[in-house]
Structure formats: structure tokens, C-alpha cells
């Protein structure tokens, strides 16, 4: 019962945070949208813990709530956006209707996908093979054995992204 209450509180908070990122009353000021995004990330980390993805919950805080948010806030302050630069949420009835329809279709797809999983009850984490489910050891083992090549490719991707970001954001004329 307590688990359900925690789940629904976190779920409602996450959805409200995500809505606050895109909706006009909250997202007029760019920093407000960024803070709403921060709340969404943090609540999602709580949901990750509920799925016993402990390592990824910590990484969610470190990478998203830490690094990504700092980047966003840094750029917002660097650009010194005024309110009129920030764009409006141009909500027409058709867009809202389309959003609701898209959500209903997505819910239907989620239901079908959930029902099609043969074992619809959660795996029992009490079994010896799953004792350390979601911990650094298990995830690290998967990353360095079965997913070794994607893992290494990720490091190259990050290097390319760093260099690319520097080149793109460099001042025109380049003498720095």
C-alpha cells in the first residue's frame, strides 16, 4: 500500500513537472522551465529507485540533475534571454486535441505492450541470481562484457561531442 502511495505521488509530480516545462504559465521565464525540468529529473530518480535501478538513479541525479541542468542554466544566463525571446506556447484547440489523442493512443499501445509481456508480475529479486539487481556490480558487468563495444563507442561519441560543441560554439573568425 505504501509503495502505491509513493508511486502515485512520484508519478503525478513527474507529469506535473514535465507539463510545467512546456506550459506557458510556468515556462515564461526560461529559468522556471529549467527548474521544472530539474524537479522532473529528481522525481524520476525516485521512480528509478522503486524499479531497483539504484546505479541509474544515482546517475540520473549526477548526469541530468547535475551536468545537463548546469549546461542549460549556464546557456540561459549566457544568452541573457528576454521574455519575448522565449517564445509562446501557441496552444490552439487542435493542438490540445491532438495531444490528448496522441496520449490516448500511447496509453493503448502501452497497455498492449504490457499485456504482451509473458511474465506480467515483477521478477522476484529474492533469488540468488538477482540479489544485486541494478547495483553497480551487475550493470558494470553487463557494460564490460556483453555491451563492451557500445560502451567504448559511447566514449568516442562523448569525445566527438565535446570537440563538436567547442567548434560549433566558437566565435566566428576563430582567433581565441
Amino acid at each position: 500500500m505504501a509503495e502505491q502511495i509513493v508511486f502515485y505521488v512520484l508519478a503525478v509530480g513527474t507529469v506535473l513537472g514535465a507539463l510545467a516545462v512546456i506550459m506557458p504559465p510556468f515556462a515564461r521565464n526560461p529559468l522556471h522551465a529549467a527548474v521544472a525540468l530539474l524537479a522532473t529529473f529528481s522525481l524520476l530518480a525516485g521512480l528509478f529507485v522503486m524499479l531497483s535501478a539504484h546505479l541509474l538513479a544515482i546517475l540520473q541525479i549526477l548526469v541530468y540533475a547535475g551536468a545537463v541542468m548546469v549546461l542549460f542554466i549556464f546557456v540561459i544566463m549566457l544568452l541573457n534571454l528576454r521574455r519575448q525571446d522565449f517564445g509562446e506556447f501557441r496552444a490552439t484547440p487542435w493542438k490540445i486535441l491532438g495531444g490528448v489523442a496522441a496520449f490516448l493512443v500511447a496509453v493503448r499501445v502501452a497497455m498492449v505492450a504490457g499485456a504482451s509481456v509473458a511474465n506480467s508480475t515483477a521478477a522476484d529479486l529474492g533469488t540468488p541470481a538477482l540479489q544485486s539487481f541494478g547495483g553497480a556490480y551487475d550493470v558494470g558487468w553487463a557494460l564490460t562484457t556483453r555491451f563492451f563495444l557500445p560502451f567504448e563507442a559511447t566514449s568516442i561519441l562523448l569525445l566527438v561531442a565535446i570537440i563538436g560543441a567547442l567548434v560549433v560554439a566558437r566565435r566566428e573568425g576563430g582567433a581565441r
Binding site: L51, S52, A53, L55, L56, L59, Q60, V63, Y64, A67, V68, L71, F72, V75, V117, N119, S120, T121, A122, A123, D124, L125, L130, F133, G134, D138, V139, A142, L143, R146, F147, P150, F151, T154, L157, L158, V160, A161, I162, G164, A165, V168, A169
Partner: peptide, 27 residues
Amino acid sequence: RFRGDVSVHAAVFIVMAVAAAEVAVGL
């Protein structure tokens, strides 16, 4: 969680790294 398959976490880890790279380039 429902399949008891931890190797999916590795995929999410890589998605996170890609998202961080995407944000850096996007900004």
C-alpha cells in the same frame, strides 16, 4: 525490472551518455 534482466540497464546507461552528448551539441 519485470523481466529481471539487468543488461537493459546498460542500454539505459548508453542512452544517458548519448543524451548528455546531444545536449552539449544542441546548446
